[in-house]
Design a protein around this nucleic acid. Sequence first.
DNA 1: ATAATTGCAAACACTTTGCACCTGT
DNA 2: ACAGGTGCAAAGTGTTTGCAATTAT
Lengths: 152, 152
Amino acid sequence: MGERGRYQTRQKEEIADFFRARPEQCVSAEEVHAALESNVGMTTVYRAVARLCEEGFLRRYAPQSTGEASLYQLNPCRESHLHIRCLDCGALAHLSCDVAHGFSDHLMHHHGFVLDEGQTVLYGRCQACAARRKTCAEEGREPVDDTAAKAT
Amino acid sequence: MGERGRYQTRQKEEIADFFRARPEQCVSAEEVHAALESNVGMTTVYRAVARLCEEGFLRRYAPQSTGEASLYQLNPCRESHLHIRCLDCGALAHLSCDVAHGFSDHLMHHHGFVLDEGQTVLYGRCQACAARRKTCAEEGREPVDDTAAKAT
DNA sequence: ATAATTGCAAACACTTTGCACCTGT
DNA sequence: ACAGGTGCAAAGTGTTTGCAATTAT
C-alpha cells in the first residue's frame, strides 16, 4: 500500500496480508487481532482496517444488530458495482447488470441520490436459503439460524 | 396494544403515541426519551421499542456506523421499502416507488436473490451533499464532514 | 530530523441487566 | 395478591482517542 506520506510498517503489512490470504472471507477486528500471533494492538487493528477501507482495499459490513462487531473483507473487486449478501449463508453475489445500473441512474434522477455502490451491500436470501426458509415455514418450524454466516 | 399477559401502562402508551404522531419519521431511543416530558427512563424506552418491534408495530433500522443509535419508525403498513442514506449528512430517504420494486423483482428473477428491504440500506449522497462535494473538489479542498446525521 | 505509527489506558456511545420498588389486573 | 412493569445504577458491547514512546522515511 504505497501511499504518499505513509510509512510501511510490520503491523500494517501483516494485517493486509491477513486479508489477502482470505479473499471473500469476512472477519471482525477482534478476529484479526487474535489471528496475528505477533502482538498487534487492537487499536492498531482498528486504525488499519479503517484506513484500508478508505483506500478501497477492504470492504466493511456494518453490524446487523447491536452488540455485534463490524466485519471486514478484502474488497472483491475494484470496479464499482452492487453486491447482495445472503443473510443466512453469507453468499455474496455481484450485480453488474444493466438493471442495477439503471436503478442507480433512477436514484440519481428521480430521488436526487448519488448511490455509492462501494459502500452499499444489499441484504436478502439466496435461492437455496430462501427455499429452505419457505420449507421451514410450511412445516411450522423455525428456520434454523445457523449464524455460521461467514463468507464465500 | 392489548396483548394478553401484558399490562397497559402510561409509559408504554406514551411511547406508542409518540410514534403514532410521527408516521414515517425515524427516531432514536434517546430522542424518544427526550421528547417525553413526563419522565420515562431510558431503560423503559429501550424495552418498549424492543417489544413494539417484536409486535410489528415499529420497524428498526440498525446503525450504519459504530457509535450511532438504532432508529425506530412506525411500521406504516406491512409492506417494506428500501431506504437510502446520505453518507455525509445522514439524511434518510424512503424509496417506495415502482422502480425500486421492479429492481427487487429483478433480483429475485434474474439473480435468485430475495431482497430483504428491511435489512438493506443503500448508501450514497443526497443532492445537497453531492453538490457540495463536487464544489469542494473543484476548489481543491476537502469536503467538510458535518456529521449532523439525523433522519427523516 | 521529523512526520507517521504504535499501543496502553481511559473515554465513548449505545444498549442491556440486576434488582428493589411500583402498578395494572 | 401477584405477574408484569419501571428505573436507577452498574455492567457490557464494540470502537475511538489522548498521549508518550517508537519507528519509517
